[in-house]
Write a protein that binds this DNA or RNA. Structure first.
Length: 118
DNA sequence: AACGTGATTGTTGCA
DNA sequence: TGCAACAATCACGTT
C-alpha cells in the first residue's frame, strides 16, 4: 500500500534515481512522449491568474499552497472542467505515445526509404 | 491479472 | 537552468 501515506517526500528532481522493483525499469522513453497533463495543470493555468490577481505579491510558494488549498475546495463539478481537459490531454498523450511507438518502430526498420523529413 | 513505481505535467521567482 | 511546494495521473513494468 504504497499509496497514500500522509506524505511522500520522495519524488523530486533531486531523487531522479529510481531503481527498484527489478533493477531500474528501462530509463523512461528515449523520445519521452511525455505523459498527459494533470487536472491540476489546467487548474493552475486558469487559477494562476486569479491567484496573482488577488495575490499580486504571491510568488510561487504562496500561489502554490493557495492553489492546492483552493483545488481541494473545489467540488468534483468544479474540477470536472479541469479533469475533462486532463482527460483530453490524456488522449493527446496517447497519440504522442502512439507516434512515439510508431516512430520507434519505423525508425528501426527503415533507414533508407524513410523520407528525410527528420 | 494484479500490483507498484516512477516519470511527467504546469505555475512562479530567484541564485 | 533547474528546482522548490502543490496535486493528479496513469502508463509502464515488474511480479
Amino acid at each position: 500500500m504504497p499509496k497514500e501515506a500522509s506524505a511522500k517526500p520522495k519524488r523530486k528532481a533531486a531523487e531522479k534515481s529510481a531503481e527498484k522493483t527489478s533493477g531500474g525499469r528501462a530509463k523512461k522513453d528515449p523520445n519521452a512522449p511525455k505523459r498527459a497533463l494533470s487536472a491540476y495543470m489546467f487548474f493552475s493555468q486558469d487559477w494562476r491568474e486569479r491567484i496573482k490577481n488577488e495575490n499580486p505579491d504571491a510568488g510561487f510558494g504562496e500561489v502554490g499552497k493557495l492553489l492546492g488549498a483552493k483545488w481541494k475546495e473545489l467540488d468534483e463539478a468544479d474540477k470536472k472542467p479541469y479533469v475533462e481537459q486532463a482527460s483530453r490531454d490524456k488522449t493527446r498523450a496517447e497519440t504522442e505515445k502512439a507516434a512515439y511507438e510508431a516512430g520507434e518502430s519505423k525508425k528501426r526498420a527503415s533507414s533508407a526509404d524513410e523520407d528525410a523529413s527528420e
